[in-house]
Design a binder for these strands. Structure first.
Length: 509
RNA sequence: GCCCCGUUCGUCUAGUUGGUCCAGGACGCCAGAUUUUCAUUCUGGAAAUCAGGGGUUCAAAUCCCCUACGGGGUACCA
């Protein structure tokens, strides 16, 4: 019988979640939904020293914004809870003890100073100290010490950790859904700490125990976990859970757009693009990091862009709704190498999604924004404007810079354009035109005005550009914007004439 | 250093079983067209000797080996 698909996203609350993590979560989500399975959120807060206030709430809010719903976990609940590792603390020790009893783990009493001592000694010889099958007998642990000594140390309350014992000369093998078969020699691996002296498990122990208890079927996580996967596989086997071991898929990492290394929290604002889904204010330093939401990205665009960063469906399609992604996603089409984030492409994705956005919704939002700017206008005007300029915007916030002239008359005129278009005598011509436009009756004014202008141009043997550009300059303040007739329609007779008069007065030529 | 993973246009990538690939698409870039202007849009273009070198083969981006480079790991962090 095929096991039910259950995947988890398991961040640690050490700060805001960055887009690499979001992508990992997205792939988990897509895989779960495609297989009719469950997508859980587990908070891995076993390191008390790195806990950051607000990080957990941030993570939950980020996924809410992105539209990725968890079926189970922190903030939702479920029958495998609690889903926060700090709340599961009491049970981990039993599992660690189980491994001690079966001989797969041992107590280690070495202090941090002692270990550092060994590390620096090794470094002096240009070697790296490793707590492993070759060195453990020269250290203070329940393998090297007599059972009496160990018993008395434990009785005296000497701090200890529990380490996994790798047997020498074994080959640990497993299959990764993205990378294929992987082999590692056990003697190369170090005896990782499973249980810390503060009474908390390390990631490795808690992760395996929880994945097993929560019936996780597939572990889809970042490539940074690949090196410790042999330990995880060994842990499953040591617990006797080998037959129920989840399948692993290690995702390539997101890399810095410039230079080297994986994308980090610092890169975003250094390079001028967000690395976080939502804006984040560091509770200690009060430093603000920008977010996609606050930068004007649509969540659908972010999801689409992230999905395509390391995956494609093999066709030339690039725009996918979440539903399509759920249907078409496949782990074996994930690329094996890291991907550099490209913010130009991210912008392009947003442009695509902004164009698809309903004009009424966009208009209502823009209307609110205008109100906040202290501009009085009405919704139907805003709708007309949005229809005219939407296609030239990549973000909703671009609306203003592309349409401010609809709501405020120009106070100055683009110098370059003025030099090029406004010749000697133009002001006089404009005054004549203004007078004529004034005399046209209000009914369907813009169309009649246009007819008049065409006629005027022809009769005076002028070019379109000579008149239209100057008119535009006077009304808009620059040679930009949609069709002049459309602008005249929106602004109306009175406003157009006002602006013309102001322009002919201000521009002295 | 050691271990693991990777390497196709500037970037994201197609290329899965070797021949139809002197390598396709997208973003960006450049040019032209459309537009009274700007932007959009459309059309076209430049852009990867498939990291390099050896094999295997009639035939390799595709298989094997080596080297280089990149990434990750090497914590009582996740």
């Amino acid at each position: 019988m095929e096991k039910r698909v259950r995947v988890r996203f398991a961040p640690s609350p050490t700060g805001p979640l960055h887009i690499g993590g979001v992508r990992t979560a997205l792939y988990n989500y897509l895989f779960a939904k495609q297989n009719g399975g469950d997508f859980l959120l587990r908070i891995e807060d076993t390191d008390q020293t790195r806990f950051v206030e607000g990080a957990e709430e941030y993570i939950i809010e980020a996924f809410k914004w992105l539209g990725l719903k968890f079926d189970e976990g922190v903030g939702i609940g479920g029958k495998y809870g609690p889903y926060k590792q700090s709340e599961r603390k009491p049970m981990y020790k039993d599992y660690a003890m189980q491994l001690i009893k079966s001989g797969h783990a041992y107590y280690a009493f070495d202090t941090a100073e002692e270990l550092n001592q060994r590390r620096s000694e090794a470094e002096a010889e240009k070697k790296t100290f490793q707590y492993d099958c070759k060195t453990r007998m020269s250290l203070r642990n329940s393998l090297s010490l007599s059972s009496d000594e160990v018993a008395s140390l434990l009785e005296n309350g000497t701090p200890y950790v529990i380490r996994f014992k790798f047997e020498e000369g074994e080959t640990i093998e497993f299959d990764d859904m993205i990378r294929g078969h992987i082999k590692v020699e056990s003697s190369l691996l170090d005896d990782k700490v499973l249980y810390k002296s503060d009474g908390m498990p390390t990631y490795h122990l808690a992760n395996i125990v929880d994945d097993h208890l929560m019936c996780i079927s597939h572990v889809i996580r970042g490539e940074e976990w690949l090196p410790s996967c042999p330990l995880h596989v060994s842990l499953y086997n040591a617990f006797g859970w080998g037959s129920e071991m989840p399948k692993f898929a290690h995702l390539p990492l997101l890399l810095k757009p410039d230079g080297k290394g994986k994308l980090s929290k610092r890169d975003g604002d250094r390079l001028g693009f967000p690395v976080f889904p939502l804006q984040w204010t560091d509770p200690k330093t009060k430093e603000i990091s920008s977010g996609y939401r606050e930068s004007g990205y649509l969540p659908e665009a972010v999801v689409n862009m992230l999905a395509l960063l390391g995956w494609n469906d093999g066709t030339e399609q690039e725009i996918f709704s979440l539903e399509e992604l759920v249907n078409k996603f496949s782990i074996d089409r994930i690329s094996k190498h890291g991907a550099k984030f490209d913010m130009e492409k991210a912008k392009w994705f947003n442009h695509q999604y902004l164009q698809k956005l309903d004009n009424d919704i966009l208009s209502e939002e823009y209307f609110k924004e205008l109100k906040q700017k202290g501009i009085t206008t009405d919704l139907s005007t805003v709708k007309q404007v949005v229809e005219l300029i939407k296609e030239r915007c990549s973000f909703a916030k671009d609306l203003w810079m592309n349409s401010d002239y609809f709501f405020t008359a120009p106070v100055e005129y683009a110098e370059k354009a003025l030099k090029k278009r406004w010749k000697e005598g133009t002001s006089d011509t404009m005054r004549i035109i203004s007078k004529q436009l004034h005399d046209i009756d209000d009914e369907n004014w813009a169309q009649k005005a246009e007819d008049f202008l065409m006629d005027y141009i022809q009769k005076n043997e002028l070019n379109m550009g000579q008149i239209m550009n100057c008119l535009r300059l006077a009304v808009v303040g620059d040679t930009k914007g949609p069709n002049m007739l459309d602008i005249m329609k929106v602004l109306g007779k009175e406003e157009i004439l006002n602006r013309l008069d102001v322009a002919t007065e201000k521009i002295n030529l």
